[in-house]
Design a protein around this nucleic acid. Structure first.
Lengths: 218, 218
DNA sequence: CGATAAATACCTATTGATACGGATTTTAAA
DNA sequence: TTTAAAATCCGTATCAATAGGTATTTATCG
């Protein structure tokens, strides 16, 4: 339909901290017609810098990068260069990740284990003003949202203060030491601990610590 | 020196579960002269199957793959096809990982964020009967081994009984419950706990649990 | 056979954490 | 501005865990 857009040779920028991957990807992209690679960035900031210098039609980016991560990069790009289409290429099928990518309005999401065919399809779809979200991933996302509705979030929300205290507990401070550190009474710390135990449904210190580990509060 | 070997077109096999990566890598490799890609495998078993079917000079493999991991694959390949050179391409600079790769006698180890130049260098080095271990990684390995010598293994050896009790602690049993469960006195459990704390150099329950987590005693 | 490690058991004292009550103030959202 | 959540504080009581000890039995290793 919008063949003109493709025919005038789309400009593509790749951002990935794994140089071998981005170079390989570049080699693949170059095999597609009417597409030209205008740069490789190995982190978010570099990508933004390159975007400033020249017009880009399509950004291919990883999520995990040192410094600014992919999500943040997408946000920034969408803010400053809204015309740039963005295809996120990630290792993970984590639904939360996909949701995050969704939320920042990237046009596409595919996995690193996608086939070349799927990759090409995604690119052409995006350049055609469409979107492409890997179906493998979308399925997981759906299943998750369904599950969430069923079990109606037994999600635990520790308050900032509570999280802070849990972190200190994890650092082997006693309640008394935590109190000193935070300039509050030991009683207060006790109360927080009580509430934390309740909220996390744990009945012992050991259970609490296991909770912290499983929720990456370390 | 052994130019004949390179000139007769080396056969390369790539194993990586991220298809986009292996396809990209293939595209890169094909830009090198006298090298031909004879197959892409997306897991260890597939790689072994392909090796059975045709002669291969060089195997490029990831470490993290579903099913058989890269280390295991290298082992198998070295066992059944000892003439195949192996270049491990990994995301991680983890010294333990490099050590493992070393131990199974892979000829090379580079990171996914290596440059194309380094990649090409590694390949030619291997095809020339040499080895190539990314210097970035080797440095870390060295530093680690030095550190290890300095602190000369403060390795902890919990007795079977102690490990058993630690496991029960991790399952949120109190000392009294553990005593009942093991038909011993609570005092005995106390003593064991005391010794466990000593041996693991932890001074609090939290520290102990962290130790258990870090040593997979769960 | 002697030495050592492991497992067992006990004692006293202290510290830390949890249970069960409350209550007030600050802050942010509706 | 009302309301709810978060953060603050206090008391009493009990339980759990740790810090010091000491001591016996059993098995294993050299």
């Amino acid at each position: 339909m919008t063949a003109e857009e493709i025919s005038k040779s789309a400009k593509v920028l790749i951002a990935d901290d794994h140089k071998l991957f981005s170079e390989g990807l570049a080699a693949l992209v170059q095999q597609i017609e009417n597409i030209e690679i205008i740069g490789l960035a190995s982190n978010g900031q570099e990508a933004l810098d390159l975007l400033q210098l020249q017009s880009v039609d399509l950004l291919l980016t990883d999520i995990h990068m040192p410094g600014m991560n992919g999500i943040e990069l997408v946000k920034q790009v969408k803010m400053h260069f809204p015309e740039v289409k963005i295809l996120v290429i990630s290792m993970y099928q984590d639904p939360d990740m996909v949701e995050a990518v969704f939320d920042v309005n990237a046009e596409g999401y595919i996995l690193k284990d996608a086939s070349r065919e799927e990759f090409v399809k995604a690119i052409t779809r995006l350049l055609d003003n469409g979107t492409y979200y890997s179906s493998a991933v979308m399925e997981k996302l759906l299943r998750k949202s369904i599950q969430q509705k069923r079990s109606s979030q037994p999600i635990v929300n520790l308050s900032p203060r509570e999280t802070e205290i849990l972190r200190l507990i994890m650092q082997e401070y006693s309640s008394e030491e935590i109190a000193e550190k935070l300039f509050i009474s030991k009683r207060t710390v006790d109360t927080h601990r009580k509430n934390i135990l309740q909220k996390t449904h744990s009945s012992t210190l050991v259970g609490l610590i296991k909770y912290a580990y499983q929720n990456n509060i370390i």
